[in-house]
């Protein structure tokens, strides 16, 4: 969450879904609703699975587990979705590529503003509890893994590489937003 590769990945996959849904439904908080459904469903899987006892059936076992290890805490995409829903009415009548540029920039900007400090929080002991679950380690993760060592993956070795990566992330967010607009329009155009 402190590497450009993370924001590149999120920017490819998330805006297209949120914006397509919003474009197709035309509801005021469509993107926020979709993001909320994702967050609640993901969190439910995380919190419910861990209630069931389990034991590893394959070895080697690096971390002892006594119950299912659920999913990671969900990405904080709700603020970014709120940003999209707030901006959309202002630019609705503009050219599609302009809309995509604004929506992509808003999405990425809010994601960085929220997820970056949240990533820092997930590294702290305060997050090692049943809700955030960062202390719940899969039995397969060896002690050398970054997840176990609790360190960020410095994917971009230099500041220049990071800056370039974030530029690519912005381009991905804009392209994803444009595809989302097209997909949403198509869904509205479906007749049979």
């Amino acid at each position: 969450m402190h590497s450009a590769i993370f924001y590149r990945t999120v920017s490819i996959g998330v805006p297209i879904v949120l914006i397509a849904a919003a474009q197709a439904s035309e509801k005021r908080w469509a993107a926020t609703t979709i993001a909320g459904v994702y967050t609640v469903a993901w969190l439910a899987v995380r919190l419910i699975l861990r209630l069931f006892p389990a034991e590893p059936k394959l070895g080697p076992v690096y971390n002892q587990v006594t119950h299912y290890v659920g999913l990671f805490f969900p990405l904080l995409i709700i603020p970014a979705a709120i940003g999209l829903d707030l901006v959309r009415p202002w630019i609705r009548d503009r050219r599609k590529w302009l809309q995509a540029g604004v929506l992509g920039a808003v999405f990425l900007g809010v994601m960085v503003a929220v997820q970056w400090p949240f990533g820092t929080f997930l590294m702290l002991p305060a997050s090692r509890n049943w809700f955030f679950g960062t202390g719940e380690l899969s039995y397969l993760w060896p002690p050398e893994s970054r997840l176990v060592r609790n360190v960020f993956y410095a994917y971009e070795p230099t500041r220049a590489a990071f800056t370039l990566g974030m530029g690519i992330a912005l381009a991905c967010a804009i392209l994803s937003a444009r595809l989302g607009l097209a997909w949403g329009k198509w869904m509205r155009d479906v007749r049979r």
Binding site: K57, G59, P60, V61, Y139
Partner: peptide, 16 residues
Amino acid sequence: LLPLRLTGAGSEYAPK
């Protein structure tokens, strides 16, 4: 039967 690593991490805990 139980498979484990020979030394270090993975040699302490065993699967079912």
